[in-house]
C-alpha cells in the first residue's frame, strides 16, 4: 500500500466543509436557546421547596448527564417514531435537524441547569437579605442583585458548555444531517474515501479554531463583565 496522504491539500478542503457552517451554527444556536430555557425551568424546580419537583429535576439531570448523546439521538430518532406510529402518529415527515436540536437541547439543558443552580447558590444569602432589608420585593431582588452576580459566576462554565455543545453538533451526521461533519463525510465519499484523512483533518481544524474563538470570547466576556467587582460574596 502506497502512502497517499497529501497534507498540502488539507487547507483546500476547508471551504467545502465550511459550506455547512450555517447548519452547524443553527443547530448550536437553537439547542443553546432551547436548552437554556429548559435549564432555567429545571434549575428553578431544583431550587424550589417542593420535594417532588426537586426529586424530579434531580432525576432528569442525572439521566441526561449519564446518557451518551449518541444513544439519546438514536432513541429519539429511531425509537420515538416507532412508539408514535403505534398510537397513530406519523413522524416520518419531521426534518432530521429537529431531532438533533431536540436531543442536544435536552442534553445541554441538564448541564445548564446544574450551572445555573450552582451559580445561584454561590451568590451569598446576604445579598438577597440586604435587598429585602431596604424593602425590595423578592423578584426585583433576584433580577437586580442576584441574577447579575450569578451570571458573572456562570460565564466560564457557560463557555465550556457551549464548547461541548459545539462539538456534539458533529453527531448530527449519524442520522444523515449535513452539518460540517456530514459535509466532510460527503466530500470524502465523493472521492471514494481516498482523501478522507485530509478532509477530516480539515473538519477537525475548523472545530478547533471555533473552540479557540469561543474560549477567547468567554475569557474576555468574563473580564469585561466582572471588572472591578469581586464575584461570589460571603
Amino acid at each position: 500500500m502506497t502512502n497517499t496522504f497529501k497534507p498540502e491539500t488539507i487547507l483546500g478542503y476547508i471551504p467545502g466543509v465550511l459550506k455547512a457552517l450555517p447548519i452547524t451554527m443553527e443547530i448550536l444556536f437553537l439547542s443553546l436557546l432551547i436548552g437554556s430555557i429548559l435549564g432555567a425551568l429545571i434549575a428553578t424546580a431544583n431550587l424550589s421547596n417542593n420535594i417532588l419537583l426537586r426529586k424530579m429535576s434531580s432525576g432528569y439531570i442525572s439521566f441526561m448527564r449519564g446518557i451518551p448523546t449518541l444513544v439519546l439521538i438514536f432513541l429519539l430518532y429511531l425509537g420515538l417514531p416507532q412508539i408514535a406510529l403505534n398510537i397513530g402518529i406519523d413522524m416520518s415527515n419531521i426534518n432530521k435537524s429537529i431531532y438533533i436540536i431536540a436531543c442536544l437541547s435536552l442534553n445541554t439543558s441538564a448541564n445548564l441547569a446544574e450551572m445555573m443552580r450552582s451559580s445561584y447558590l454561590a451568590v451569598g444569602k446576604g445579598q438577597c437579605e440586604a435587598a429585602y432589608s431596604i424593602g425590595m420585593k423578592s423578584f426585583t431582588a433576584f433580577r437586580r442583585i442576584v441574577l447579575p452576580q450569578a451570571f458573572g459566576i456562570a460565564i466560564p462554565t457557560l463557555g465550556n458548555n457551549i464548547i461541548i455543545l459545539l462539538k456534539d453538533t458533529s453527531l448530527a451526521f449519524a442520522i444523515g444531517v449535513i452539518d460540517m461533519m456530514g459535509k466532510g463525510r460527503a466530500l470524502s465519499a465523493a472521492s471514494y474515501g481516498s482523501n478522507r484523512l485530509e478532509v477530516y483533518m480539515a473538519t477537525g481544524i475548523i472545530f478547533w479554531v471555533l473552540c479557540i474563538i469561543l474560549e477567547y470570547s468567554s475569557k474576555s466576556a468574563e473580564k469585561a463583565y466582572t471588572k472591578g467587582r469581586k464575584q461570589s460574596a460571603s
Partner: peptide, 29 residues
C-alpha cells in the same frame, strides 16, 4: 421592611454595584 432598615455585621453591600449604586438602589427601585 420599608419602615425599617438594617446594617449587617458583614456589610452585605451589593457586590455587583458601586458604592453610589448601592446607596441609590433603594431610592430608585
Amino acid at each position: 421592611r420599608r419602615k425599617t432598615a438594617m446594617v449587617f455585621q458583614n456589610y452585605n453591600l451589593f457586590q455587583n454595584k458601586t458604592i453610589l449604586e448601592n446607596v441609590m438602589e433603594g431610592l430608585i427601585v
